[in-house]
Design a protein around this nucleic acid. Sequence first.
DNA 1: TTTCTTTTGCAACCAGGTTGCAGAAGCGTA
DNA 2: TACGCTTCTGCAACCTGGTTGCAAAAGAAA
Lengths: 142, 142
Amino acid sequence: MKQDNILEIFSDLGIRATTPRILIYEYIKLQSDTFSLGDIENALPDTDKSTIFRTLILFEEHHLIHSMEDGSGAMKYCLCRNQGECEEEEFHCHFYCEKCKKTYCLDNQASTNITLPKGFIMNHINFIIKGICDKCSHKTDI
Amino acid sequence: MKQDNILEIFSDLGIRATTPRILIYEYIKLQSDTFSLGDIENALPDTDKSTIFRTLILFEEHHLIHSMEDGSGAMKYCLCRNQGECEEEEFHCHFYCEKCKKTYCLDNQASTNITLPKGFIMNHINFIIKGICDKCSHKTDI
DNA sequence: TTTCTTTTGCAACCAGGTTGCAGAAGCGTA
DNA sequence: TACGCTTCTGCAACCTGGTTGCAAAAGAAA
């Protein structure tokens, strides 16, 4: 897999290639960091919110994207690097900048050793570090 | 400090001891795990939502409680063990049970080694592990 | 082209959070 | 106890993000 052709990716996963889905996937592919439903709404004003909402659910079910909560109030998403082959949820660590409100993916930046109490079963991890990002910390104006 | 008397705690912090605040703090003190604004609303039907909201902000500003997002859609809170003396946000790890929707505080259960990229400044950590809690994992009915 | 299934867009709704404001409550002083 | 000022509360209204029902549109198969 790992192909760049949107139509191939969709057909491999058995997803119908409709206009909104293609537009949304094209948008997603351009994002280097995370994005929200609202971001897509702004980028694609002719596509309905509920369509975007259902498309994001579809993409996540097919492991094309991951979702996470960063505490901004809006669910954030990011492209899965393993296009549809990511069975196990990756250990995703994210950084939320409290100044520019951007959420970055930090892969392999945090090593964590978790010992859960007896009887607790781990399914997913939602790990958000909050602070100021490099771009914002370099600015002199507070 | 570390007193149990609500009036003393409030006066030490310079917080006016009003009826809603006392009721809310009494409720909070009884909780062994986390709670939401909605939980307090249900427990105190005669107290207005906005009053609870503003009281929670007040309590958090005075470090009586901590807040965290567990992805349930509602902000969760828990009592600070150091009653008003917790300047630095503790490293709080929480466990969200996807079955009973309860969020547990897991103190000292996870050791984390974080190496942030250059220029990134950490202020807070929001670390949620999702899965099934001990009570729910022991139940035979799925 | 016809028929059936899937998807979309609209509208409406919901929950949680948030705000403005008038009246109530608290508190110091007389 | 009454007065006057400040703070707090309750109500109502609003906002944002998420979610759903449903009729119309689009896609796929025959």
